[in-house]
Design a protein around this nucleic acid. Sequence first.
DNA 1: TCAATAGTGTCTGTTAGACATTATGGA
DNA 2: TCCATAATGTCTAACAGACACTATTGA
Lengths: 232, 232
Amino acid sequence: MPSPARSSALSVAVDLVVLTPRGGELDVLLARQAGGGRARAVLPSAPAERGRPLDDVARRLVRAAVGRAEARDFWLEQVAAIGGRLAHPAGADVAAGYLALAPLRTELATGAAALPGAAWTSVRRAAAILPARQRALLDAATTLLRRRVDDAPVAFRLLPPTFTLSELQQIYELLLGRRLHKASFRRALQGAALVHPTDEWRSEGRGRPAQLFRYAPKKKRAVRRGVRFDLE
Amino acid sequence: MPSPARSSALSVAVDLVVLTPRGGELDVLLARQAGGGRARAVLPSAPAERGRPLDDVARRLVRAAVGRAEARDFWLEQVAAIGGRLAHPAGADVAAGYLALAPLRTELATGAAALPGAAWTSVRRAAAILPARQRALLDAATTLLRRRVDDAPVAFRLLPPTFTLSELQQIYELLLGRRLHKASFRRALQGAALVHPTDEWRSEGRGRPAQLFRYAPKKKRAVRRGVRFDLE
DNA sequence: TCAATAGTGTCTGTTAGACATTATGGA
DNA sequence: TCCATAATGTCTAACAGACACTATTGA
């Protein structure tokens, strides 16, 4: 066992993956690389600091992306910390990746404190242009998100305070990667008592207007399901 | 957005949480703190090194714990990287925690390369005596493990190559934290075609001897389950 | 023979998904 | 009037859990 007291000093970066739904797929927030001359697209990143929790640094990046008010109730979770030789834009020895979820139709912050060159990009395209280490973090972030689908709250973090049931179903279909049965979906939702109808309706193009709902979980107990031997 | 190019140097440790089932609960591997005079119990830890993947460092710790041969097919996954002010035995600024799963009845390595003072301790007791940062990693590790229950393979990582179905069910009951129905459990297992019977039987005390099974997944497709609105 | 554990067959209530139907707006 | 989408009711096959039973060992 190597001595834990001897520990070489490394540069540690906090990288942020902000995801939001758009048009049936996921978008990720990319920024223009700061400092360098070339305008390379990168994940928002900031150096870690001694004595400050990594979460704090990540939260600051979220604020820079969407503004202080919006950032307050953003879901944020660490994805992975990656070391090794993979390329990183800031040259960090270790990159700690965080995942944040932005509701549908979230506007990016503007102004002096905002991230330079920030824009939504499809995950598919981002994976093609990001440096290797950040691509690995993006992959890990989307995998983590899909793993959290069963935790009902994350789906609602991808929606504004009020939404239609069709929008909610589309979120689940996006996260699960497959179509769902409408009646069955709504029955399960009814049983879980997670949403509460408002008295507002929204009409989009043709068809009957949809009622708007709000996330308002009533039951606090988890569902006891049977053992499922799913394969990875 | 702070400049990503400026990044202060931090000490980074890799901490290892090895879990194994014993007597209906989980045990974690603790070691005696190296270097210091006091014999404090800590998670096995090693400093991260520039250019070397964190996984490599974690894998080396696993080898020190159980020996090279055993360690080869150990499941290993990163749990979290924690910075901030919480106490860490090696004084690291950032601790990257890894979770490894040891099969039932795993013997610890002995000899010069082994971890000093390594011993299995119940998770309950370990949580009471570990330094704050390592306690947080242990909590995150057990949470991660329970979240992975649906990925059938992790349950089998907690068992030796051959096992009885009662042992397998006990693993699931341990991970899920509740009793399961025997007939239903075996029916689901049958349907998933994950295990294959051997022609060996094991008799333990009274009662009918149990047939030994081997993990041998036949189907590669995942089960398509319905949407479940579980609460956290 | 008794106790204890392994392993299996049958029944029933629940539910996911299929299908069909009504409701209500815009084009 | 069509057409598109929302919302809901009914049916069925699958299945989780309960219960009961047989099988096989050690004490």
